[in-house]
């Protein structure tokens, strides 16, 4: 009992601290409201979303990207500065469709204070891919299809116009220009990929992130394992993919920037035993674009890089 009495002050202390913390949720001034003449503060998640937000926003916006180049949104660990970036933003753009994992809850709660907008929200359900087991759980990797990404432009444009109506014309102008650029990019992608004959249009990667790319540009996408990075491959998966390489006579497979290349190497070894020597055609940008300041640091550069590698790897030698 004496112990109980001795610990009583500690209990009281905890209760006081909790009441203190619980009763006064953050009163830090959240911005939002009228932006007036100052630049619009924008916070984004993945770095291709950062690129989009900057292109449409132009001079009027200051964009802070939470995820640097090469950071897989599923594996993102926040740094201390990210708190202020979210708190001070006028608007937050994110990928949505569970791309950001747990952060989605936070962005959802934040939407009481300020617009938090999933750039994928403008895409109708019938254009989204969903795994057969789970209804309503969509594949988030929409940016691999240029026409789908074009929908994201509309979402961002709309958000800016609502937030900063005085400068609506500028946003509309830049969005129109970018939509034209994306249309040109789409045509370019189709033309580059046209060099690959139908029977070689097979994209072998370590996990299943390129579904939208396959649907849009008529590729069969063969992943060693499903979308989940928490599970493991089976020997049957390795043999199955090696079988595809051997049967179709593929000369190149691809690794992704965020997954260990080990299983792809095992597949190549198994394919070699079946008489088909393939090589690693290069590293595709999967869940993040490249470094800032390099061509691959933008969405357009990232797509060009990926498509270039794929065409180089799969097109017959004569056509290159």
């Amino acid at each position: 009992m004496s112990m109980a009495r001795r610990l009583l002050p500690a209990l009281v202390a905890i209760v006081v601290v909790v009441l203190l913390g619980a009763a006064c949720a953050s009163d830090s001034s959240t911005s939002g409201g009228d932006v007036g003449e100052r630049p619009v503060r924008v916070t984004t998640t993945a770095n291709f979303i950062t690129d989009l937000a900057e292109v449409i926003g132009g001079e009027r916006v200051e964009v802070t990207g939470l995820l640097g180049p090469g950071v897989d949104p599923h594996l993102y660990k926040a740094s201390a500065g990210d708190v202020a970036a979210l708190r001070d933003a006028d608007v937050v753009f994110y990928g949505g469709l569970d791309l950001e994992g747990r952060m989605a809850d936070v962005l959802d709660e934040l939407s009481d204070d300020k617009p938090t907008i999933a750039v994928s929200e403008g895409i109708p359900d019938d254009r989204k891919r969903q795994p057969t087991e789970f209804e309503g759980k969509f594949d988030p990797h929409i940016w691999f299809s240029v026409p789908l990404w074009r929908e994201a432009v509309d979402v961002v444009e709309q958000a800016y116009v609502e937030l900063d109506p005085d400068n609506a014309d500028g946003y509309r102008e830049r969005a129109d220009a970018y939509r034209a650029e994306l249309e040109a990019l789409d045509a370019e992608v189709r033309e580059t990929l046209a060099s690959i004959p139908d029977d070689k249009r097979v994209l072998v990667t370590s996990h299943d992130a390129f579904g939208y790319f396959g649907e849009e540009y008529d590729f069969e996408v063969v992943g060693i394992q499903g979308t989940s990075t928490a599970t493991e491959a089976t020997t049957a998966d390795i043999d199955r993919v090696a079988g595809v390489i051997a049967d179709r006579g593929l000369e190149a497979v691809f690794i992704e920037s965020t997954v260990s290349p080990q299983t792809i190497r095992a597949v190549l070894a198994a394919a070699e035993r079946r008489g088909q020597t393939a090589r690693i055609g290069g590293e595709l940008f999967a869940d993040a674009a490249g470094e800032r300041g390099t061509p691959e640091g933008t969405y357009i550069g990232m797509v060009r890089h990926n498509v270039g590698l794929i065409a180089e790897g799969l097109a017959p030698s004569g056509s290159r």
């Binding site: 599923h74 988030p140 989940s228 990075t229 928490a230």
Partner: peptide, 9 residues
């Protein structure tokens, strides 16, 4: 296997 279900998310 085809959704992102792991401890982090």
């Amino acid at each position: 296997a085809n959704i992102h279900l792991d401890l982090d998310s």
